[in-house]
Amino acid sequence: KKSYVLIKVKNPKTKETHTIVVPEENLEEVLKALASQPNVKVVDIERFP
């Protein structure tokens, strides 16, 4: 059974918020990819039960 993680990201320029759902096993690479985006800020990470 896969567990999923909900990542909320915000664009500081446009103030838009997006929610991305990723499998927990991919969380680290997704966070690394997001960290390299200049106008993306991770605001929240939630685990799915």
Rank of each mutant, 00 (worst) to 15 (best):
N26W: 11
S3L: 12
K2N: 11
L6F: 07
K13I: 15
E28L: 09
S36V: 07
S3W: 15
K1T: 13
V9F: 15
N11S: 04
K8A: 03
V9G: 00
E24Q: 06
D44A: 14
K41M: 15
P49D: 13
V42M: 02
V22T: 04
N11A: 02
K10E: 15
S36N: 11
V42A: 01
I7F: 01
V30Q: 03
V5I: 07
D44H: 13
Q37A: 05
V22K: 00
R47S: 08
I45A: 02
K1C: 15
P49R: 03
V42R: 01
T19L: 06
A35G: 11
L6G: 07
A33I: 13
K2H: 14
P49Y: 07
V22Q: 01
P49A: 09
V9K: 00
E16F: 03
Q37S: 07
V21T: 09
D44Y: 14
P38H: 07
V22M: 03
I45Q: 02
V30K: 03
N39I: 03
P23M: 08
E24G: 04
V43A: 03
K2S: 12
K41R: 11
K13Y: 14
I7D: 00
I20R: 02
L27N: 00
S3Y: 12
E16M: 04
Y4V: 03
S3C: 06
A33P: 00
Q37F: 07
V40Q: 07
K15Q: 14
D44S: 14
E46R: 12
E28S: 09
I20Q: 02
R47Y: 11
L34P: 00
V43H: 02
T17L: 10
I7M: 01
V40I: 09
L34W: 03
A35Y: 14
K1S: 09
L31S: 01
Y4Q: 03
T19D: 08
Y4P: 02
A33E: 09
P49Q: 11
E25S: 08
V30P: 00
K15D: 15
H18V: 12
A35K: 14
E24A: 08
I20S: 01
K2R: 05
I7Y: 00
S3M: 14
S3G: 14
V42G: 01
E29C: 07
S36C: 07
L34T: 01
V5N: 02
E25A: 08
E25F: 03
E16D: 05
K32M: 11
K32A: 09
I45S: 01
V40F: 11
V5W: 15
D44P: 01
V43N: 02
T14M: 03
Q37C: 14
T17H: 08
K8H: 13
D44F: 13
P23E: 14
L34I: 12
Y4W: 12
L34Q: 00
R47F: 13
V21M: 12
V22L: 03
E29G: 08
I20H: 03
E29F: 11
V9Y: 15
V40N: 06
Y4L: 05
K13P: 02
E29D: 09
L31K: 02
V5L: 07
Y4R: 02
V21F: 09
S3I: 10
D44Q: 13
N11T: 03
T17R: 05
S3P: 12
T19M: 06
V42T: 01
A33T: 08
P23Q: 10
V5Y: 15
V43M: 07
K10Y: 15
E25T: 05
V21D: 01
K2I: 14
V43E: 06
N26G: 07
E25P: 03
T17Y: 08
K15V: 03
S36G: 09
K8E: 02
I7R: 00
N11G: 04
H18P: 00
Q37W: 08
E24C: 11
T17P: 03
T14N: 06
K8G: 02
V42P: 01
K1V: 10
D44L: 12
A33H: 14
K15H: 12
T14S: 08
K1D: 13
P38C: 05
T19F: 11
L31Y: 02
P49M: 06
K15S: 13
R47N: 05
K2P: 15
E25H: 08
V9M: 14
H18T: 11
L34K: 00
V42N: 01
P12C: 15
I7K: 00
T19H: 09
I20C: 07
S3F: 12
P23K: 11
H18S: 11
L31H: 01
P38D: 10
N11Q: 02
Q37D: 14
K10V: 15
A33R: 11
K10I: 15
V5T: 03
V5G: 01
E25G: 06
V43K: 02
N26K: 12
T17W: 07
K8I: 09
T19G: 06
S36P: 02
D44R: 08
P49E: 13
L6T: 08
V40W: 05
K8C: 04
F48S: 05
E28N: 06
I20V: 05
K32Q: 09
K10Q: 15
N26C: 12
I7P: 00
V40D: 02
K8V: 09
K10T: 15
P12D: 15
K13V: 14
F48R: 06
Y4S: 03
S36L: 14
V30T: 14
K8S: 09
P12F: 15
L6Y: 10
V21K: 09
V22W: 03
K13R: 10
R47T: 09
N11L: 04
V21P: 02
V5E: 00
E28P: 07
V22A: 04
R47E: 07
P38N: 07
H18L: 12
V21R: 06
E24L: 09
Q37K: 12
P38G: 09
P12V: 15
V43Y: 04
L6I: 13
T17Q: 10
K32R: 10
P12Q: 15
V42H: 01
E28T: 06
I20T: 02
V40Y: 09
N39E: 09
V30R: 03
T14A: 03
S3N: 11
Y4K: 03
K15T: 08
F48H: 07
L6V: 10
P12Y: 15
I45C: 06
P12G: 14
N11F: 05
K15A: 11
T17A: 04
P23C: 07
A33C: 14
I20L: 13
V42I: 11
L31Q: 01
N39R: 03
E24M: 08
K8F: 10
L27S: 02
T19S: 10
V43D: 03
R47K: 10
A35E: 12
V22D: 00
N39K: 04
P23I: 09
I7A: 00
A35M: 12
E28I: 08
V43Q: 04
E28A: 12
N11V: 06
V5F: 15
K41C: 08
E46G: 07
S36T: 08
L27E: 02
E24W: 11
F48P: 06
K8Y: 08
V5H: 03
T19Q: 08
V22I: 09
N39G: 12
S36A: 12
